[in-house]
């Protein structure tokens, strides 16, 4: 029981900008940001469900997403090439528009 993998390495995605309740593994600081899929990590039970003592199935694809630090933090004081990578489950990601 696994949700189909929607994104491939190199694709540009945007993290859902949402602030629900519950146990969430998408950090606040990265919500709404856009980045590039660095790798597909595999599929894992959904932690939001596991935390509530449910199965977490079907498994959700998990990705490493790479973000440019200068885009994540408006006041970032470091090189333009600095990046941050975050593991994000598929249901938190949407395809970013071309040119984003």
């Amino acid at each position: 029981m696994t949700v189909e993998t929607r994104f491939r390495p190199g694709e540009r995605v945007r993290v859902m900008q949402a602030y629900p309740l519950g146990h969430v593994r998408t950090p606040y600081y990265i919500r709404g940001a856009s980045g590039v899929i660095e790798r597909v990590c595999g599929a894992f039970p959904n932690p939001e469900e596991l935390a509530q003592m449910r199965s977490g199935l079907p498994k959700q694809p998990l990705y490493r997403v790479r973000f440019a630090q200068a885009e994540v933090w408006p006041d970032y004081r470091g090189g333009r090439a600095d990046t941050i990578e975050v593991e994000i489950f598929q249901h938190w990601l949407d395809r970013a528009e071309v040119g984003e």
Partner: peptide, 12 residues
């Protein structure tokens, strides 16, 4: 030198 931060948010 670029710095790459890795936030271990899930299963890796």
């Amino acid at each position: 030198v670029a710095i790459r931060v890795h936030d271990s948010t899930a299963d890796m």
